[in-house]
């Protein structure tokens, strides 16, 4: 019983960590631009697929991974430059549609650059399961958890301690005030897309050895990441992490103890219930509407 519980918990944590990384990407862009970027899942796909193809041409992991992350970041920057920036001032829904268009475009591009098949990636350090209190975990899951933790720490240092990070944070709080204080708001917006694309790519690379990857792997992960970000409170870094982990654990616990067929539905019912009582998510900004 308790070994079973531990197993569900470990699984939930691993899945949740990935959701958290995707959710962080959503939040960073949202903070800088108020845009919900529905192409976030495609960054996850690009990370995984690019690594697979770089490994296939003979590069070692140490080279392939940074290159893949850089590639995704470049795509993120291009997305901002050529799709979001020209539409400045458009309504929120219009921007959402643009990012959805971008996600379809990127998926289509991926089928041409790569293919439509599933691809496996070798685990970073073997695949002999490790036993913890009667439950087992793959070494790759430890990578997922460890890297997620490192990313979260790095981000909190970045936003709390660096000038650029503080500028990004300031922009999210009050765009106009930030601009008046001499912050280059457009640059912040630009960089936020690069940063969250890189985060998505990291998630995609970490998960690929566990789940395999393909051109449309980003659709579901993007959706779950969005849900996690909303559950935690859009725009909140802590919220994204907590939301991701909570969603992951809810799913595995529902699958384990209730019904595996309805686990996603149960997760969404819980999210809806949370939103009814906390309309801005667990850690979202509260406050009145500006008239």
């Amino acid at each position: 019983m308790s070994a079973q519980f531990t197993q569900y918990l470990l699984t939930g944590l691993t899945v949740g960590a990935i959701y958290a990384l995707v959710a962080l990407g959503f939040s960073i862009i949202f903070n800088a631009s108020n845009v919900i970027n529905f192409a976030q899942g495609e960054f996850v796909m690009i990370g995984g697929m690019a690594t697979v193809s770089l490994i296939a041409v003979g590069l070692p992991y140490l080279l392939a991974i940074p290159l893949a992350v850089a590639a995704a970041a470049l795509v993120g920057l291009a997305l901002e430059k050529f799709a979001v920036e020209p539409a400045r001032g458009a309504s929120v829904v219009t921007l959402i549609i643009i990012t959805i268009g971008a996600s379809i475009f990127l998926r289509g591009l991926a089928t041409i650059i790569w293919d439509k098949r599933f691809h496996a990636l070798k685990p970073f350090t073997g695949d002999a399961p490790i036993t913890i209190a009667g439950a087992t975990i793959l070494p790759q899951s430890l990578w997922v958890l460890g890297v997620t933790l490192a990313v979260v720490l790095a981000l909190s240092w970045f936003f709390g301690r660096t000038l650029l990070g503080k500028a990004m944070l300031a922009t999210s709080h009050n765009r106009l005030a930030a601009q008046l204080a001499g912050i280059n708001v457009r640059m912040v917006l630009f960089l936020s897309f690069g940063l969250s694309a890189a985060l998505g790519a990291v998630a995609g690379i970490l998960i690929a050895p566990i789940t395999t990857t393909s051109y449309d792997v980003g659709v579901m992960l993007g959706l779950k990441g969005f849900a996690a970000a909303m559950l935690g409170g859009m725009g909140s870094g802590v919220g994204a992490v907590v939301g991701g982990i909570a969603l992951g654990i809810t799913e595995t616990m529902s699958a384990g103890y209730l019904s595996s067929a309805y686990k996603d539905a149960i997760a969404f019912v819980i999210i809806l219930a949370v939103l009814f009582f906390m309309p801005s998510g667990l850690f979202g900004k509260r406050g009145g509407e500006r008239v």
Partner: peptide, 21 residues
């Protein structure tokens, strides 16, 4: 054929960028 999906996305993006309303 193979470019169908990409073009569809591009048309969506393009229209919304140039005609945001």
């Amino acid at each position: 054929e193979d470019y169908e999906m990409m073009l569809f996305g591009a048309v969506m993006m393009g229209t919304m960028i140039f005609m945001p309303r």
